[in-house]
Amino acid sequence: MSNWLKTILFIIGSALLTHLPLIPSSFFRNLDTMVHEFGHAVVTLALSGKVMYINLYADHSGVTYSSLTKSWAFLPVSLAGYFTASLFAWFLFSAYSRGKQRLGLQVMTVLAVLSLVLFVRNAFGVTWLIGFIVLTILVLALTPKWLRDFYYLLVAFICLEESVFGPFSLILYASRNAGQAGDASNLANYTGIPAIVWAVVFTLFALWCAKQAVQAFLGRNKGSRVRGKQVPVPYKRE
């Protein structure tokens, strides 16, 4: 089975599993949104722009309000959101493949704290961030390893799914109304390149990152199985 087919099946499987009734996936979907908006904000600051504030909403959408002093900076800032979310999902699975789940949880917490202190100002966003930070710290400090690993993989799978389906949904939006495709529409207005083209670029990058994430995850599990097998040692009787 090709790696691309594995990736697509893996993402579909993730979507099905994370939508089971007993899994509170809705709460964790805002993490992908937070990372997306955080990417916009960091690149804005890196290019000498100013971030006024970020809003996170209960429907898993978000928006970053900022100003830029350089007109060309609009391009990398607009690209940063979906690219950052895709890279973050890859990072989570890469950390898992190296047994660094605790590091991954710490990175999530730090990003959430920075977003809370520096950027997010609306009531829902602040409330969600506080809840996520407290929950993740409790998981880090008090839970057994099996539960901490379950929490980590739940969040990682949701981020992977969201990082792919988010930009893919832009293709659908752009095909219906080019002005309603979020970052793709903004880029279309700035560059003259159709929004659906930018939506495809975001989706292809997300799929490439997802492929790396899936390979890391499957590689970790394969390595664990190999280490778990007993290797026969030849014995020579003199």
Rank of each mutant, 00 (worst) to 15 (best):
M1R: 14
N3W: 09
T7W: 09
T7H: 03
A15P: 01
A15C: 14
P21V: 15
I23V: 13
I23G: 05
S25H: 15
S26G: 12
N30A: 01
N30I: 10
E37R: 04
E37P: 07
A41V: 02
A41G: 09
T44K: 13
L47N: 14
Y53I: 11
Y65R: 12
S66D: 12
A73K: 02
T84S: 07
A85Q: 00
L92S: 00
A95C: 11
Y96C: 01
G99D: 09
G99H: 08
L103H: 04
G104N: 04
Q106T: 00
Q106Y: 04
Q106D: 01
T109G: 01
L116Y: 06
L116F: 14
L129H: 11
G131E: 03
V134M: 11
L135Y: 00
T143E: 11
K145P: 13
W146P: 08
R148F: 02
D149F: 10
L153H: 05
A156S: 14
A156R: 12
F157E: 14
S163C: 08
P167W: 05
I171D: 05
A174W: 04
R176A: 07
N177R: 12
A181G: 02
S185P: 03
A188M: 15
T191W: 03
G192K: 08
I193N: 06
V200A: 05
V201I: 13
V201H: 00
L204P: 13
W208G: 05
C209Y: 09
C209S: 13
V214T: 14
R220W: 01
K222R: 13
G223D: 08
R225S: 03
P232V: 14
R237H: 11
